[in-house]
Design a protein around this nucleic acid. Structure first.
Lengths: 345, 345
DNA sequence: CTTGGCACTCGGAGCAAGTGAGTGCCAGGG
DNA sequence: CCCTGGCACTCACTTGCTCCGAGTGCCAAG
């Protein structure tokens, strides 16, 4: 266990290193912080910290730099999360308040988040498992295809085309089929609606003409896939330009990070693994992300929920980032999103 | 005007430089290409090329590198565009053939294009100006909001929520309104449908209860905005990771490029300006993009059309790119997209 | 436990010389 | 008139070297 003052020294090192991007030495610490002790004493503390692998020196005779483990302890011992300034709060309020549909909310959220943190912002679309089915529409477009449109709570719309082999599609036929599906599904949440539609398909011989069971089956399959499609496998991203900004962070790993952003699967898994304990905001630092090839990257994530759905958002950046500030910002945005989604729908 | 052989030398320089990323000297040229003349002769040609600012030397005593102007002449004098290999063609066929809706087509297209060219691929969504209105739906969700769903040709769906001040929204009222709008709009293309809806709004006093004209007006405004919303202000992007790949291209300008990709507006304008002459595929090289802050970037773009809509797609990469190959690939994908969109819808 | 002192380490800057790829130019030959 | 081989020249890059100084570890004294 590290002593009280050693911990303070660690905090000083992290703080100075994050803002200056240069290894920080004992002398610099006594100058910039009022510890009331001399440089030699700081050096002793630093030796202890180095023994615990919380800091390291890039070269034998240079200042110290936090290790992954050091950042981890730093984050875990952050006394309190300082709230955002009122200017920032009102900026969030103003900017998110203008948004119209869900896509817009997500886009504005990540944009805001990336601007406030100067990092890459990521937000997972809310899960729709408990959303209610509001409306179902089947529209014949052309003679051999039917467009199925699903309107869910929160104004989310799912659309998909069913290709039909034969060309006996008529308005009336489609209308009747729609009525039957609507009766079964509308009003219940997507999960029960899905099983209702599945039952409809099982009982199919009982209510449909034998020669059109195949057509009906195809349409039902499409509707079912729409009900089962979880939209929360989508994510919104913004601020990729922040990756390349200042002094050559991400030397070799930039392509990896950019690929991870494009290959949303990686990010989704990472987020999924990250946010499962009881903490509101979690961080994953450097090597802790090694399994995803992102060992030079840190991620700060928080869950958010809108009553029916629960999902995640956060930022991704270099090891050397302003953890305190970013944690505060992610938490603020997540909380705001909670409130906003809650009241809005 | 440059001589026949000088032009050949330019082509050799561009080719070698693109593949090796190192300034190419006279000796290297006689070794790798069978010009049948000596290095000294090549040197004379190079002097001419340099006089015309088609090539330049990074340092006084090093090989030559093409200038923007040199790349331009190279592209303009490409004898023929070599077709893609059959393996590549069938890969395109296979990969794009699986796509379901328009979003999927666009996503697969840019993905394919970025993989084949190793550059950033961009595709503008097709314009919908001449698409026909297939279906209109108004759904009451909650008592103070109505969701308007527009289904257009090609299976594109537009959705938007109308917020209503009062709470007198009933199923029947919405249904009646929908019927009226549908009668006016369905079947005609979006432009005439828009004016039909506008006329509906003008004549509003003639057919609606005085106390609900305000509500109706709001709904109509939403529908109208959906009809006028041109989806072709959206673009799909893929392959951003390619920007950071090899030997430090884009030294200082990477953030600018990443920002341009995120700020789709810039790209849209750039594409719009690029593809307006009669050529199938156009290129914009380096300084030619200076107005957009992309003077270290080249863009190869082509238009594509699906009968009713016309739009653009292309790739964006460093000055030093395989123009011949990329032009061939962009052209192939655009052509394939033409055919695919044409037959599919 | 803290402090000032001191020897030590080592990265980075600055300088000098050597190397070699590539050039420009020129006089001679087809 | 164009091509060619030869030759002197330029200059970026590398290597080897010294010097400097920030920062350290250790120690003996307070």
């Amino acid at each position: 266990m590290v002593s009280e003052r050693s911990l303070a020294v660690l905090h000083a090192i992290v703080g100075d290193y994050v803002s200056s991007n240069e290894p920080v030495g004992s002398k610099a610490i006594v100058e910039r912080h009022s510890f009331g002790v001399s440089a030699a004493t700081i050096r002793n503390d630093m030796a202890l910290l180095e023994e615990d692998e919380l800091i390291a020196q890039p070269h034998t005779s240079s200042g110290r730099v936090p290790t992954d483990k050091g950042y981890r302890l730093y984050v875990d011992t952050l006394a309190r999360i300082r709230p955002l300034s009122s200017a920032q709060r009102s900026a969030i309020e103003r900017f998110l308040g203008e948004s119209s549909d869900l896509d817009d909310v997500m886009a504005r959220t990540v944009r805001m988040l990336s601007q406030l943190t100067n990092q890459v912002a990521v937000a997972q679309y809310p899960s729709l498992r408990r959303t209610v089915v509001r409306h179902i529409d089947l529209v014949a477009i052309g003679e051999d295809r039917v467009l199925s449109v699903l309107i869910l709570g929160s104004g989310v719309v799912e659309q998909q085309v069913a290709l039909l082999p034969a060309s006996r599609v008529t308005e009336a036929w489609v209308h009747g089929l729609r009525q039957r599906i609507a009766d079964a599904a509308i009003g219940s949440d997507v999960e029960t609606a899905a099983s209702a539609v599945a039952r409809l398909e099982e009982d199919l011989p009982m209510w449909s003409q034998p020669d059109e069971t195949d057509l009906v089956r195809r349409v039902l399959a499409v509707v079912l896939s729409q009900l089962q499609a979880n939209r929360n496998d989508r994510i919104a991203v913004a601020g990729a330009a922040n990756l390349s900004r200042p002094g050559g962070e991400f030397a070799g790993s930039l392509p990896v990070v950019l690929e991870a952003i494009e290959e949303q699967v990686t990010l989704l898994r990472l987020f999924g693994e990250l946010v499962h304990d009881d903490r509101e905001v979690s961080a994953s630092i450097g090597r802790e992300n090694e399994a995803y090839g992102l060992s030079e990257t840190s991620i700060i994530a928080s869950k958010y929920e809108d009553g029916v759905a629960i999902s995640k958002l956060g930022v991704l950046g270099p090891l050397r980032m302003d953890y305190a500030g970013n944690i505060a910002t992610v938490r603020a945005i997540a909380r705001y999103l909670n409130r906003f989604l809650g009241e809005e729908r």
